[in-house]
Write a protein that binds this DNA or RNA. Structure first.
Lengths: 238, 238
DNA sequence: ACCTGAACACCGTTCAAGT
DNA sequence: ACCTGAACACCGTTCAAGT
């Protein structure tokens, strides 16, 4: 560990090394631990040295996102658009699962990094190759939203808290306290009424992957129906 | 203005005044300007005085979210579940539109504030009243995700940038630079191919409201179809 | 010309001293 | 007992002094 750090210290700094070290730091210690100062220390370098490879912290975050989005599988060709999109999105999801801080980082950026644009462009290309009009493809991209990048913001997300700190054992959420059931009876009722691993008996967590695919397929089915119907949005004001 | 500040200074501090002042500060100056120190100054109070009404900044943010979610219309009764959900979500969207910082704040919290839970509980109640099984209601709530609160993370969101700073004129995004069209031809193609206000001739923005309702209706239609079909998720391991 | 220590202008929060 | 100024441990980034 210290030896590795020593080796790294001798390697000359580069934008790529800075970005990869930043991703590693965020993965291991959580995004809230990613400061220019901490990152510099990890690299065995004085904080100001980073500013030669990265204009400021915002650009650092953009670069980190590009590193991650670049890991998503390239599009499969010669298969039906629906399956191609599905695989691509699930590949993106796998990548993002290794970087739990990424969704929030992506959402907080104003979005324009080249790697993200290239990815989105290729997704649009898949729709177009499947015979979609530009108009429908436009609305469909909006509809997919962040789901096209393999994540969606869950409202009751226990995993995010785990992903923040070291994230050793993804311990199942504690059983619902009785006061919860009293105040929010409908939430309590549906809490356990789902497909899930039944390893834990009482406070079972949700199967995130199942929920994601459920929603993804619901969207893709709806999109397919509109496509077959030749749907087009009304043009406003001519 | 200074007079109003003077009046406020005499009013004794309360948790409610702190929260409302925080929301106002975030609305006017952007969430990045919301610091305990700035908030205290707005209230004509020493920073440490806030800590009697709010344990720390995280609790302040939770409280701000509760203030906002509390403004969403109560559920309509005696109408079809689909219309009831639709109206509720669009009401939430209207509320959030007045507080552009809220979506990101909501997503960054670990989520458990009472007002949000109460809202979600009442949404579930609407589904149940419409005849949904607990199982389907569970998956449907996951599928709606943050959209149930009236927002969804757009990947190419020009409005967020405007909402950050003072947000005077929501100026339309600049026309696509020619290099953009060359590098991302498919994105360029769909950029203008949508329903939108055609006030601007070249760089037209998207109609956020249309895109939101498009996606919402796509989801609700899919959900209705599953409901009518009596769909239930397979139970794993019995 | 390059590198970097010190400094600046901020944070959230603790703590002890003042009333 | 309450209130609050000063202080602590951080930030990102500027800038000027050192090589």
């Amino acid at each position: 560990m210290a030896e590795q750090a020593e080796t790294l210290r001798r390697t000359p700094l580069s934008r790529d090394r800075v970005l990869r070290a930043a991703v590693a730091l965020a993965d291991e210690a959580g995004i809230e631990s990613l400061s220019m100062r901490n990152l510099a220390q990890d690299l065995g370098v004085v904080p100001m040295a980073l500013y030669k490879h990265v204009a400021n912290k915002d650009e650092l975050l953009d670069g980190m996102i590009d590193v991650i989005v670049g890991q998503i599988d390239p599009p499969a060709s010669d298969i039906h658009w629906k399956d191609a999109i599905r695989r691509r999105v699930l590949s993106a999801r796998e990548v993002l699962r290794r970087h739990p801080w990424a969704p929030l980082a992506i959402e907080s950026r104003t979005m324009a990094t080249p790697a993200v644009l290239a990815y989105l462009d290729s997704v649009v290309a898949t729709f177009k190759a499947g015979g979609f009009s530009a108009n429908l493809a436009h609305h469909v991209m909006h509809t997919m939203g962040s789901r096209v990048l393999g994540f969606s913001q869950e409202l009751f997300d226990a995993s995010r808290q785990a992903g923040r700190s070291g994230a050793t054992t993804p311990e199942p959420p504690a059983a619902l306290p009785p006061e919860f059931a009293a105040r929010f009876p409908h939430l309590a009722e549906i809490a356990g009424a789902a497909s899930h691993d039944d390893q834990s008996i009482v406070g079972e967590g949700c199967d995130d992957q199942f929920e994601f695919e459920f929603a993804l397929d619901l969207l893709l089915d709806g999109i397919e129906r509109l496509h077959q119907r030749g749907w087009t949005s009304p043009r406003r004001n001519g």
